[in-house]
Design a protein around this nucleic acid. Structure first.
Ligand SMILES: [Zn+2]
Ligand SMILES: [Zn+2]
Ligand SMILES: [Zn+2]
Ligand SMILES: [Zn+2]
Lengths: 152, 152
DNA sequence: GCGCAACTGCGAACGAGTCGCAAGAGCCAA
DNA sequence: TTGGCTCTTGCGACTCGTTCGCAGTTGCGC
């Protein structure tokens, strides 16, 4: 288990029931959750916890490197307990499935930016959008019949 | 120069002053601009053009592959006249400079997703955040003296 | 236990983007 | 040239994720 509580205390932050609970929810979720999802889950125990508290706490946890935030295009940010190795995401535009792949695959990018452009890479955000295996099957089946996918 | 007008007409879309102007602004900008920036520039000529028209037109131009839209984490989308080969961006968090790098560097990612995960990649969004060469120099100079960068 | 700064809840505000609708205007055909 | 059909536009209201200010509450060092 992470030492979120310890880290908070060490840094001089107060240990409140809200923070405790938000951390636990996040840790037990074991997947990518939005702030709203966290709030919903948290409220099953503490019904009066406000979204702003959730946002503030998530921001705090992120600043302490206990949680990582991933913003994918346009939609809500996703939060997850800091995973050991840096990773990136691929998201199925059909069913919403989120998958991971390692940062190592981006080595050529790091290289190019560093060597050719003298750019000091802070973080790289990569999100691949597409269709997961399951949805691809469905798509194929459906696509065989209908193809009126044009919009005026 | 692109044939936006021709393309529009060919596809049966009407050629309105708004669309014309929005296209010109985008083409003459020669860089990444947000919808709001486009709107502001457009209104210097046609003061009554509404944001929704700008959004609708940008969406249309994107659908015709005349313009590409790039969403970077959290902030507004930015638009640019379609560049020849697919490319991605690196953004200086200090001065806002935006650079490009080719899609080829992501080949390993494409491979991994396709082969290992059976994922049909639609598009990949990559944005590297960091410091450009120029800002790195400044940073170094400043960093030597002050280092009270902690927030409570 | 006390007190005060840190924290929370609340509600209002934000900013990007979308939508429905009625008025306006391309474009084609006559 | 003139209809006039339909695509477009402007407008205003709305959404949704997120942030903010403030007044009231509470953790925690004393
Ligand atoms: Zn799927
Ligand atoms: Zn993840
Ligand atoms: Zn810079
Ligand atoms: Zn670009």
């Amino acid at each position: 288990m992470h030492h979120a509580r310890a880290t908070l205390r060490e840094q001089g932050y107060r240990l409140t029931p809200q923070r405790n609970l938000i951390w636990e929810v996040l840790r037990d979720a074991g997947r990518h959750v939005t702030a709203e999802e966290v709030a919903a889950e948290v409220r099953r125990t503490l019904p009066d916890v406000n979204v702003s508290t959730v946002y503030r706490t998530l921001e705090l946890l992120v600043s302490l490197d206990l949680v990582v935030e991933t913003r994918l295009e346009g939609v809500a940010s996703y939060y997850e307990v800091s995973p050991e190795p840096t990773h990136h995401h691929f998201v199925c535009t059909q069913c919403g499935m989120v998958g991971h792949f390692g940062d190592g695959l981006l080595a050529p990018v790091h290289d190019e930016l560093t060597r050719r452009h003298g750019f000091a890479v802070g973080q790289i955000q990569v999100t691949a959008l597409g269709l997961c295996r399951a949805c691809r099957v469905v798509e194929d089946a459906v696509g065989a019949a209908a193809d009126t996918g044009r919009q005026a």
